[in-house]
Write a protein that binds this DNA or RNA. Structure first.
Lengths: 224, 224
DNA sequence: CTAGGATTCAAACAGTCGTTTGAATCACTC
DNA sequence: GAGTGATTCAAACGACTGTTTGAATCCTAG
């Protein structure tokens, strides 16, 4: 008994899936890194698919639980009045960023993994939908409460933009450098307020201003 | 001679890479779909890696060319004065969205592929960096010109947020439904103005307001 | 018509993949 | 200490991977 074979597989799989992606990581690589026998992964998990699901669930359920708890707390503190836009954003964004800053290794691994699975095959994507779909719905509804005058169509798109900005930042924030030579951007305590301020401004802009047509009707040709 | 073997391989590869990802698509699947011999891909391209690079380059160079041309046109029209934030956004965003609406099949394929490669292995990611890094730098500098008072750190992050919102929208806009049952969001002519308005508001918000600490110092515990 | 380079083809190479098997070993109860 | 179920192990299964080979075929210039 290798001192928690099941957990060692999970840890190694998380790290390797994050580094190389799901399809590109073989079970032999995982079991070798974990120091366990190849057949152990089929004994403890039934297949590679289930292993991935468990890897995701371990972290995602934790992050989502924190999100809901923060939102509930803000709702109690608001005593019936609608929760501020800023607080909804914070409840949604803070847990993941907090994990990233407090446990950099685990956090980076997890966010890298989310970014990958988000884009990989159908199976990883379906797992993501299952794990994160409900929580997005909750926050979408909370945002509608906080912005009652925003048309539903605009709200849906803006929620979409928010998720994109968040996911991209979590995925690439650490290693991407916009301005070459300036070094990679740092995920420090200033990032979360910046992101919240950016997004809240976007959510609050009048939807009418969005219906002006872009200035250039003529656009350059694309060859098919 | 199969009426353009080289091009048929490129087309099939683009479609299959977009649908299943790079690592999960075998050369046999590609050549079978293209109706050509397996060895043809090594004859016309030297390896699977080069094939991917060519697939990306064909579309990316077109989109990036259009971006630069639009930016140049707006600069000429501004006659020396700084280009509006809205116009910079439009020059950056419009070409991809235009491709998506004008050639839905090709556009969807390409944006799906970008989304995937963005997150897949190291090789796809390096190709993406090579193809899109320079263009991001150009627009980053244009944004700095348009917002001279915005600190460089804030600008870099906001550029990051912008790219995230764009990429996520291109990748998932067509099939994601935030509110279950309401049907998928539609990429119509209203989307681009909405995205531009959302992002411009975020870019214009005073950076000072971003330095207020989030309200909740205490955060729930994550187990490592 | 023919020589010769460009292209296509079936076949094989040397691996790796996820999964299964059946025996060996462990921990623990009676 | 024997028996029992949980766990680990080496080995193999059949299928699939990117790449290479060398002969067959096509197209075109002389």
């Amino acid at each position: 008994m290798g001192a928690g074979t099941k957990k060692r597989i999970l840890d190694a799989a998380e790290r390797l899936f994050a580094d190389r992606g799901y399809a590109s990581t073989s079970l032999r690589t995982i079991t070798k890194a974990a120091g366990v026998n190849l057949a152990a992964v089929h004994y403890h998990y039934h297949s590679k698919d289930v292993l991935l699901d468990q890897v995701i669930d371990r972290r995602a359920s934790e992050v989502n639980r924190m999100r809901l708890e923060m939102l509930d707390r803000f709702r109690r503190e608001a005593r019936g009045r609608p929760v501020t836009l800023e607080k909804i954003m914070e409840a949604f964004l803070a847990p993941a960023f907090h994990m990233l800053r407090t446990y950099p290794k685990i956090g980076q691994r997890f966010t890298r993994l989310m970014g990958r699975l988000h884009a990989e095959g159908d199976l990883p994507h379906q797992i993501m939908r299952r794990r994160f779909g409900p929580i997005v719905k909750v926050f979408h509804d909370a945002l509608q409460e906080s912005l009652p005058k925003l048309p539903p169509g605009d709200l849906a798109w803006r929620t979409h933009f928010m998720i994109g900005a968040m996911a991209h930042t979590l995925r690439w924030g650490q290693q991407m450098e916009i301005t070459p030579g300036a070094g990679p951007l740092l995920i420090d305590e200033g990032l979360l307020p910046r992101l919240i301020a950016f997004l809240c401004a976007g959510f609050r802009v009048a939807p009418e201003s969005a219906h002006r047509r872009p200035s250039s009707q003529k656009i350059l040709k694309v060859k098919p």
